[in-house]
Computed example of a mutant assay.
Amino acid sequence: MPAPSATYAFLGPEGTFTEAALLKVPGAAQASRVPASNVNVALDTVRAGSADAAMVPIENSVEGGVTATLDAIATGPELRIVREVLVPISFVLVARRGVRLQDIRRVSTHDHAWAQCRLWLDANLPGAEYVPGSSTAAAALGLLEEDCHYDAAICAPLVAQEQPKLSALAEDIGDNSGAVTRFILVSRPGILPERTGADKTTVVVPLPEDRPGALMEILDQFASRGVNLSRIESRPTGQYLGHYFFSIDADGHLEDARVADALAGLHRISPATRFLGSYPRADNQETVVEPHTSDDVFEAAKKWVDGLRPQIGSPESGSGASPTA
């Protein structure tokens, strides 16, 4: 983990859900925090050494994976996930003071926020045009600019509360009141967080060959060792049509024998596999381990095989004589 005096980058501007996630990291409230215009900029700040770590969104309970993050951490100089944070998501519709709901023709926000408010928008602003924003907070703050080309924004309640020139026209407009976004704290490769028993391991696995059974071979590396997958998503590599990699979250830690063995199997069939880290789960949910996949059983099996090795010999030594000789 970065030191308390670390510099953190986050998907900005100030007031985003990402900053709220960052503020849950011990010491981050007192540390230097640098907003970034997009996920790539935040991660490149870490790669360049200008920041010790970056907080970025990776998954939403309604919309699934955040593709910008999945793609950005799968390529370029390697990074490590050292922590995850879960943030409940609530949205408000804001506009400049004096603007009425019936005046709104164009609405800006992040694409994940727009997707999570579709039902409310269809019922209350059926003709509103969507204007993509780099973040929910950026969309809201854009309303304060003189040349703003949209009428309202969807953002976190905190933004509306901190901007006196904006007013909330509608609150809690999300279609799912239990929506949660998962954020990850990413740093340069270094010492991994210790195993807690409630851990998650993230890897990126390129599909080595597009053929029947190729994905099954990848999944078998986990299934045969009793490793549960909590998330698996395919993303195009961008090299050519039909070429994909898989972003995978597995229950467990690299220090777990079953996880280490599964990663070794992945590397054998897909040498370009990228290890993104083992880190504590934000929900503290302990991993259920079947008796036959425990560390003790893996160690016992290794000792058994090692005990058989001395029996290996050559015909010339006489140790490998046929029982019929």
Rank of each mutant, 00 (worst) to 15 (best):
T287H: 01
F222A: 00
E59R: 03
A160E: 04
M216T: 02
A74P: 01
D283I: 06
R96S: 01
E209Q: 13
V107A: 14
G142W: 00
G12W: 10
A170W: 04
A3D: 14
I58W: 15
P164E: 01
A138L: 00
E63H: 13
A272V: 01
Y150I: 03
L125G: 07
S294D: 08
C155H: 00
L308E: 02
A168W: 03
G277T: 10
D103G: 03
L219Q: 12
A48Y: 15
L169I: 02
V39P: 00
G65S: 11
P77S: 07
E78I: 05
A139H: 01
G65P: 08
L93M: 03
D249A: 01
G127T: 01
S317D: 13
T7Q: 12
T67M: 15
A42Y: 09
E286G: 05
A9K: 04
G252P: 10
L158E: 04
V259D: 11
R100V: 04
R188N: 09
Q311I: 05
D172A: 11
G64I: 00
M216N: 05
V227S: 09
P164A: 01
S90F: 05
V66D: 03
R235C: 04
P193A: 04
V131H: 02
P126N: 04
N124M: 13
L219D: 06
A198V: 05
T273L: 10
G49W: 14
P88D: 04
L266E: 07
V99L: 11
A95V: 04
G12D: 08
L185V: 07
T196R: 14
C155F: 01
C117K: 10
M1H: 14
L241Q: 11
G318A: 05
A53K: 11
A68G: 02
L93Y: 04
P157R: 01
L79Y: 00
I81F: 00
P2Q: 11
T7H: 10
S37F: 10
R195H: 10
G178Q: 12
V99H: 13
T16L: 15
F275E: 02
N124D: 09
V227M: 11
G318F: 06
P271S: 11
A29H: 03
T293H: 13
D306K: 15
R105V: 05
V159T: 10
L276R: 11
I173W: 03
S234W: 13
S37C: 04
E171G: 01
R211K: 09
S270E: 07
Q311V: 07
L70A: 03
P208C: 08
S135A: 04
G213F: 03
S37V: 06
E286V: 08
D103T: 05
E14L: 15
A152Y: 07
W304V: 06
C155D: 00
A21P: 13
G12C: 11
F10W: 07
L101N: 06
L308N: 01
R235A: 06
D147H: 14
V180P: 15
S32G: 15
R309F: 07
R105I: 06
I248D: 02
